[in-house]
């Protein structure tokens, strides 16, 4: 555990909580892509199956349970509790175009051809593109509420910090995981355009377009 990894995890946690609280407090999920949230729930489910097979640390177990629990709670709020406010007409990204190729890639490029490892690889690849329905939705409507942009910013910062974590681990532990690093770079790049808009616009005007 290094400072980049810890702040990355906390940034990820902040993003998840910000989104959940926003929906809860406003009683609305307008502007939020339910499809991205389904993909994140799928990401956490397939990645954290090792909760059932191995214990790593109390921190690890707690964070995994919180991430999975919050992901399903968010999906529940969007598709059940506040379904009437869900902006389905603008959430039109075809997620099968992500899930199917990513599934194929996980079968072809992995560290070990075993069910758990393939599912872990699938989750890494899928996470790197899971935000696309949300970004697509924003580009379609041309706007996002400020709090939604804070959510996206924290989510992007999390993966960027993980990149620094991997650089740190490479130098000080000789550790590197090519699958995680390549997917992490892709994931971070997808947020770059958004980062630029966030810094130049969100803090200037309270409306993101």
């Amino acid at each position: 555990m290094n400072v980049f990894r810890l702040t990355g995890d906390l940034s990820h946690l902040a993003a998840i909580i910000i989104l959940l609280l926003k929906i809860w407090k406003t009683r609305s999920c307008a502007g939020i892509s339910g499809k991205s949230q389904i993909l994140f729930a799928l990401v956490f489910t397939t990645r954290y199956l090792d909760l059932l097979t191995s214990f790593i640390s109390l921190y690890n177990t707690c964070m995994k349970i919180i991430y999975v629990g919050c992901a399903y709670a968010t999906v529940y709020l969007i598709y059940a509790k506040f379904r009437a406010t869900y902006d389905g007409n603008h959430d039109t990204f075809r997620i099968e175009f992500l899930v199917v190729p990513v599934g194929g890639l996980a079968f072809l490029v992995n560290h070990d051809f075993s069910p758990l490892e393939i599912l872990w690889t699938f989750s890494i690849y899928l996470e790197s593109v899971a935000i696309l329905p949300q970004l697509f939705m924003i580009s379609k409507t041309g706007e996002a509420e400020t709090i939604t942009t804070h959510y996206l910013f924290c989510l992007g910062v999390y993966r960027a910090l993980y990149l620094f974590n991997w650089i740190w681990r490479f130098y000080f532990e000789g550790f590197f995981d090519m699958i995680a690093i390549v997917a992490g770079v892709v994931q971070t790049i997808l947020y770059c355009d958004f980062f630029y808009l966030y810094v130049t616009k969100v803090n200037a005007v309270q409306r993101f377009q």
Partner: peptide
């Protein structure tokens, strides 16, 4: 840091 060992990252 083996490739398919214990995954401590989230």
């Amino acid at each position: 840091g083996d490739e398919q060992g214990v995954k401590d990252e989230l």
